[in-house]
Design a protein around this nucleic acid. Structure first.
Lengths: 251, 251
DNA sequence: CGGGTCATTGAACCATATCAAGTCCTGTGG
DNA sequence: CCACAGGACTTGATATGGTTCAATGACCCG
């Protein structure tokens, strides 16, 4: 299965052109040379739902772009209490590009497709191409902003606001993905890529409380259930109000 | 007061050599040229306790190294609820080096000394010197780790564990600053740079709960009060246990 | 149809918030 | 030096939002 570079390269580069993670991913804006070198060390991998992608305190073996699916980043206390500290969607980057060990667990919340780069080779490329490191830095700043928004949620929001905030994040993502340009406040239908237990671990609640609050938001007409694993929000503005959001906050 | 570069440079560079933020700061490991260019655009500033250093959603005018004092980064909900999303000490870097606006408020928790760089000039230097951006990226990754550790605290820890965790952070910092190499678990004396209200906003609690938990930890012998604004922890291991820490966790 | 997982609902409890006094500092002016 | 004013902190009593424990319901897959 080991192809020589000249055999594998054209195929890989072709796939880069149609990559779902090209827009917004770390590859965006890279030059021909960077992209070609990146594609040379890349390989795709599919990971079934529920599987651990890498573990905390482990030496990282690879970094990856997420091509499809949802990844949850978790940390746990000694007695088993868990907190989800990040959710990654395409075209997010997975892995801590510097440092000796992973800072948290990464698990496939759904089936996940990755475009993986061996750690050693990727770090070499980063040293050679400041533009690549620059893209990663920007992505990390965005992750830091998201983490801090979540700290506000965890520390200061009520259960209802927490659940509404979570649904709002999903709804906004879905709207952006559907790239609806209409500025109005029309409804959005979106998938729930997480089970109740994951939502609870993300929001610092119990599954029972999450369930009750979803029921409540439903009874208030802020969301409706569309079959299993799918919801519809008639008004993002109303949902944002329930989330205690700072108006224009994009989180 | 405007000096020509050849006049200001030697003085500035000399002060860089004895800079309290040199060890661990972004300047560490930079070459002569980088350092000299950085020093050329730098100016020092002292900010009294309680003053806002910059505001959320504002275009950043400068970035800075913290030379002394404590800075709190805060976010607020529309109705006034507040959450501290980060605490910065020397030699941390203050500011979001990319992006159009500040992501949160920065306030001087104590009197603060800064080494400021005008935003525009600093970003130019970053483009020219990948090594500088690399240092900043590493620092940002550390901040992200810290933010995620704090998410676990906010989402999953009890009030007692939260307060113990906070005191543990301060104690570990003080120990490291005193650079005690003795591996044993001796006591540490440290300052409390935050008032109760700040501690509460950092831990997602009320001041009353913070006060009660400190009283409780004191009565349990885990800490003692040393005058005003100073505490002593006889055993970091015991404090870590009360913090529900993952043993070797350095946060 | 049966067994498993996931989600919902109900009832009781408890940790933390809230409301309300008090106490301890610290600086200031007489 | 004392009196006292204001802020920061502590302590107490009560309320409550969210957890816990337990049962039930919905769905999927074999």
């Amino acid at each position: 299965m080991n192809l020589r570079p000249d055999q594998i390269l054209p195929e890989q580069l072709r796939s880069c052109r149609s990559c779902p993670a090209a827009k917004g991913g770390i590859c965006e804006g890279l030059g021909e040379e960077e992209l070609s070198e990146l594609s040379r060390i890349a390989h795709h991998r599919t990971i079934p739902a529920g599987q651990i992608i890498f573990s905390e305190n482990e030496k990282p073996e690879f970094f990856a772009n997420i091509l499809s699916g949802t990844v949850r980043l978790t940390k746990a206390l000694a007695d088993g209490r868990q907190q989800i500290v990040g959710i990654l969607f395409p075209p997010d980057f997975l892995g801590r590009a510097h440092g000796a060990t992973n800072a948290c667990f990464a698990e496939a919340a759904t089936e996940v497709e990755l475009c993986c780069y061996p750690a050693e080779a990727f770090r070499n490329l980063m040293q050679r191409f400041p533009g690549l490191e620059h893209r990663l830095y920007e992505k990390t700043l965005d992750e830091l902003d998201a983490a801090r928004d979540w700290m506000v949620l965890l520390g200061r929001k009520t259960a209802r606001e927490k659940v509404a905030s979570f649904l709002l994040v999903l709804a906004r993502r879905a709207r952006k993905a559907g790239c609806a340009v209409h500025g109005g406040d029309e409804g959005v239908t979106f998938e729930l890529p997480l089970r109740r237990i994951d939502i609870a671990d993300y929001l610092g609640l119990t599954i029972e409380t999450v369930s009750r609050q979803i029921t409540r938001l439903r009874s208030e007409g802020l969301v409706t259930t569309v079959g299993s694993g799918c919801m519809h929000a008639p008004s993002l503005a109303a949902l944002a109000a329930a989330a205690g959001q700072d108006e224009d906050d994009r989180a």
